[in-house]
């Protein structure tokens, strides 16, 4: 398992956001997390790169292993961890005052990565399926890009520092269907190099891009299995109700 979560509980002050969640993510697979708002999906992925603990009043118990190493073991540097476990958010968040090129380089500089930046920028933009669209205007503002392009730029920025795991929190929910399809295609390609955990409200998207799906409800992991099984023959009645639209 690339990621192994054991008995994870997470809290925001008195709110119990995750309740004893255990699951594993094999390397080079995509795990989709589905569930209604407030079910703990985002909290779950934020625990995997130790972002949850940055929120005031937040705490967690249980263990998370990446490559068999406990994230909270002594000597684990959260900044170094976040280099290996990248994250992409719902709204594209390029650095607004920087060019396309500098946006990708910024990640490298922040992480003190030297070497041939031009080559790394091209490689990352190609990996993010953005290169052909921006190669002739690398030095124009990142804000000149469309929303979908900005999101792929953010993915390129995250890829530049060479992560092994990519966490994606609703990466396509602010995008149109074509931009969404490009992100989904990208997810399938990146899977060959990375392990991906994607949070999505769009169940068809989960069905399309993931190998495994986990359904969360009120902080609990209700069911976790192969995506095809979850969407054709879920074992748990609550999963059945959610994927067929019988909730609430």
């Amino acid at each position: 398992m690339k990621i192994e979560v054991r008995g994870l509980d997470a809290y925001f002050r008195s709110t119990h956001a995750l309740r004893s969640v255990s699951l594993g993510v094999p390397a080079n697979t995509v795990l989709a997390i589905i569930g209604p708002s407030g079910c703990g999906k985002s909290t779950f992925v934020r625990c995997i790169n130790r972002m949850h603990e940055l929120v005031p009043g937040a705490r967690q118990t249980g263990q998370i292993f990446v490559d068999g190493k406990d994230l909270h073991a002594r000597g684990v540097d959260p900044v170094d961890l976040r280099r290996r476990v990248g994250m992409v958010f719902q709204r594209p968040n390029p650095f607004p005052t920087m060019s396309i090129y500098d946006n990708v380089v910024a990640g490298l500089r922040l992480n003190g990565i030297g070497g041939d930046h031009a080559e790394l920028v091209e490689k990352s933009l190609r990996q993010a399926a953005l290169w052909d669209e921006v190669k002739d205007r690398l030095h124009t503002s990142a804000l000149s890009l469309s929303g979908g392009q900005q999101q792929r730029l953010c993915i390129a920025r995250a890829l530049a520092i060479g992560p092994e795991v990519m966490l994606m929190d609703e990466p396509a929910s602010a995008l149109d269907p074509i931009a969404t399809a490009k992100i989904e295609e990208l997810i399938r390609e990146l899977r060959q190099q990375l392990t991906i955990v994607i949070v999505t409200h769009n169940m068809q998207q989960a069905a399309r891009v993931s190998d495994h799906t986990a359904f969360f409800y009120m902080g609990e992991l209700i069911e976790h299995g192969e995506t095809e099984q979850i969407f054709t023959n879920p074992r748990e009645p609550r999963t059945e109700d959610y994927v067929t639209g019988k909730f609430g």
Partner: peptide, 9 residues
């Protein structure tokens, strides 16, 4: 409707 689970079946 993009049916799933028992609806799809």
């Amino acid at each position: 409707r993009q049916p799933a689970a028992s609806d799809l079946r």
